[in-house]
Amino acid sequence: MTTQILVIEDLPANLKLLRVILEAFGYKVLAAEDGYAGLQTAREARPDLVLCDLLMDGLDGFGVAREIRGDTILKRVPLVAVTALVTDGVEQKVFDSGFDGYITKPIEARKFVPQLEKFLPENLRTSTLPH
């Protein structure tokens, strides 16, 4: 079965970018434009990995991480923050909130997939080459 990655990102342009990159590497992309929608999708579809923006209206990325880590079914899913927040102390807060990884925007498109595949079990990685 194709590996599913849920992307929670409120800016359509950035969502589209992640979709283009991930699909090119053979991943199935599920998308949500805010934290609550993201959680709902996660509970229904049980993705293999979640990429999540931090600053969003409504439920923000930190809130998403809290909910996911408190959910009996979702709590072990790899969760990676993709954010334009880069100030001192943010990284620590990201890990403290339950994220497994922290990738800053602007992302480096060529390194992005290898960066996040570190958080996927080997059998779920597609390939590091675009299809």
Binding site: N14, L17, A84, V86, T87
Partner: peptide, 27 residues
């Protein structure tokens, strides 16, 4: 400066990102 950095990085992500995906031959 904090919000400026965040606000500028956000659109920059799509600008440099799509330039890269095109250069990677994804399209």
């Amino acid at each position: 400066l904090f919000s400026l950095s965040h606000e500028l990085r956000t659109p920059l992500n799509a600008i440099s990102g799509f330039a890269a995906t095109l250069l990677m031959g994804l399209s």
